[in-house]
Every structure is written in C-alpha cells, then in structure tokens.
Computed example of a mutant assay.
Amino acid sequence: MSLNVLGASILAAEGGEGSGFQAPTPAEFYQPLIGQGDWAITRPIVVLFISVALISWFLVATTRKAAIVPSKGQWVTEGIYGMVRNGLARDIIGSRDFLRFVPLLFALFTMILVNNLFGIIPPVQYPTMSRIGVPIALTLVVFVVYHAVGIRKNGFGGHIKHMIPPGLPKPIYVLIIPLELITYFITRPLTLALRLFGNMFAGHMLLLLFILGGEYMLIHGAFGLKIAGIGSFLLALVLTAFEGLIEFLQAYIFTLLAATYIAGSLADEH
C-alpha cells in the first residue's frame, strides 16, 4: 500500500465511529515533500525523476552488451523499440521521414508507460500522469514538434493553409478556417493532455476508494460490512489488473496520436 493510501487510511481510522468513512479527495494527489505552493518539491516530481533514472539505467544495462541471441532484458528493450519504431513511427509517419522522430516517440512511450505503471507497483503506487502538469508538459512538446515540422516544410502560411481541406467553396472558408484553427491549436493539445490525465486520475481514485473503503469496513463495520470489505479488496485486485491494461493503452494512444499529428504536418496533401 502506498504512503498516500496509508495516510488517508490513518485519518479515516482516527476519526472514529462518529466521523464515518472519509472518502479520498483530489488532495491525495498533491503531496509536498519540501516547501509549499507552486514551487514545492512534491512526490510526483520525485517519482518522475526516479522514472527517468530507472529508464536510463535499464536501456544502458540491456543494450551495452547487445548480442545476436538477446538476453531477457535486451529482448524487452528491442521489443518495445521495435513496436514504437515499426508499429507507430514507420507505419504512421511513413518510411521516408519516420526515423528522425523515433527517439521522441520512444521516449514519450517509455516515460508515460513507466510512470503509469508506477500507479500499481509497490511501494510507489502513484501514477505521475495523474498530476495534470505532467501530461500538459508532454503535450506541449508534441504541440511544438508537429507545428515546427509543418512550418519547416511548408512555411508558416503554407502550414496554416495545409490545415484547410482542399476543394471547398470559398464562402465556406469563413466557417472552416476558425474551426480548423481551433482544432489544431486548442482541441488537439487539450484532448491529448486531458485524456491521459483523466484516465490516470480516475483509475487511481477508484483504487483508493475500494482499498480505503474495504479497510474501513473491516476495521469499523459490523459482520456484514466486514464481508463487504473483503469483497471490496477483491474488487480492488481486479481493478488493479484492469488498470495495468489501461495504463499501457494510454501510453500507446498518446504516442499513436503524437505520431499521427506529426504525420499530418508532413503530409503532401491534407
């Protein structure tokens, strides 16, 4: 059980019978370690740095002595790299331009995946992407890249023109141009960040609710509630397995959409 779960559990238990169960709140996701406010060093940022160090160590350790017959670690690294390189970058961006974007897409996928999986791996049990600032930062990287490559290829005016579907009657441009600009500059980055954040936030909140609720019923409930508490813990185990699948899918979807947006900026036609 993670530290935030333990802390919330202790508060619920100390409240006594009169106070009742204290459901988890969004405050569980803000855990300052040093300082307070916007510039505090929080648990999410520490977990993020740990993930970067862990990924770097694993990649170096598994590729430093690469062999024709791969070790288990090398096999895992090559499998993930091959999926991102061939299944995402090459198939979506195209064989002509994909190679220069493979490092970015590989870094995005591995960072998001590891930080998502931290949500169900003890003793961390905290998905870093459940803090909205982290998905926003990654989305800004993707936003800058796909606009930069489009401007570099077509020029600023050509990049904007590239957003408009060809063959439309001129009068419709009055409606289409604002909609396309909103799509490319607001809707895409907003949904990219919120999709990742929302899934990680909601999944972790559900796990907290079932674990804390089950613990409260076992400690403070009557016999019937204690049975329900056992069921709550069992359901939390099922949700943990389901959450692991969601965490992988969200890393894949984020990387897939990043590749799709880059491919759209590089396309010769809309």
Results as ranks from 00 to 15, higher is better:
6 L>F: 11
7 G>F: 13
7 G>K: 13
12 A>N: 15
13 A>Q: 09
14 E>Y: 14
15 G>W: 00
16 G>K: 02
21 F>K: 02
23 A>P: 08
23 A>R: 13
25 T>L: 09
26 P>W: 06
30 Y>L: 09
31 Q>A: 08
31 Q>C: 08
34 I>T: 01
36 Q>P: 02
38 D>N: 10
42 T>W: 01
42 T>N: 12
43 R>P: 06
48 L>T: 09
49 F>A: 14
50 I>Y: 08
55 I>H: 03
55 I>P: 04
56 S>R: 12
59 L>R: 00
64 R>W: 12
65 K>M: 06
66 A>S: 14
68 I>K: 12
69 V>K: 14
73 G>D: 07
73 G>Q: 08
74 Q>G: 07
79 G>S: 09
79 G>P: 05
80 I>N: 06
81 Y>E: 09
81 Y>Q: 15
91 D>G: 03
91 D>C: 13
93 I>T: 10
94 G>A: 05
97 D>C: 01
100 R>C: 05
102 V>E: 15
102 V>H: 07
105 L>I: 03
107 A>I: 08
109 F>Q: 03
110 T>Q: 04
111 M>N: 12
114 V>W: 12
119 G>Y: 07
120 I>M: 04
120 I>L: 04
120 I>V: 10
121 I>V: 15
124 V>D: 01
125 Q>K: 04
127 P>S: 04
127 P>R: 01
128 T>M: 05
128 T>C: 09
128 T>Y: 02
130 S>R: 09
132 I>Q: 05
134 V>H: 05
136 I>F: 10
141 V>N: 04
142 V>G: 00
146 Y>F: 15
147 H>S: 07
147 H>G: 05
147 H>K: 02
149 V>C: 01
152 R>K: 09
157 G>S: 13
159 H>N: 04
159 H>A: 11
164 I>F: 05
165 P>G: 04
166 P>W: 03
167 G>F: 09
169 P>V: 02
171 P>Y: 08
173 Y>A: 12
173 Y>G: 12
175 L>G: 06
176 I>L: 12
176 I>C: 01
177 I>C: 00
177 I>S: 07
184 Y>F: 05
194 L>E: 08
194 L>K: 13
195 R>D: 08
195 R>L: 06
197 F>S: 03
197 F>Y: 15
200 M>L: 14
202 A>M: 15
204 H>C: 01
207 L>H: 08
209 L>N: 12
210 F>S: 01
210 F>L: 15
212 L>T: 03
217 M>K: 10
221 G>A: 08
222 A>M: 13
224 G>T: 10
224 G>D: 14
225 L>P: 08
228 A>N: 12
229 G>T: 03
229 G>F: 10
234 L>Q: 05
235 L>T: 13
237 L>E: 14
238 V>D: 07
241 A>C: 00
244 G>S: 00
245 L>P: 00
246 I>S: 10
246 I>A: 05
251 A>I: 00
252 Y>S: 10
255 T>C: 08
255 T>W: 03
258 A>K: 01
261 Y>R: 06
262 I>C: 04
263 A>E: 08
265 S>D: 07
265 S>H: 05
268 D>R: 15
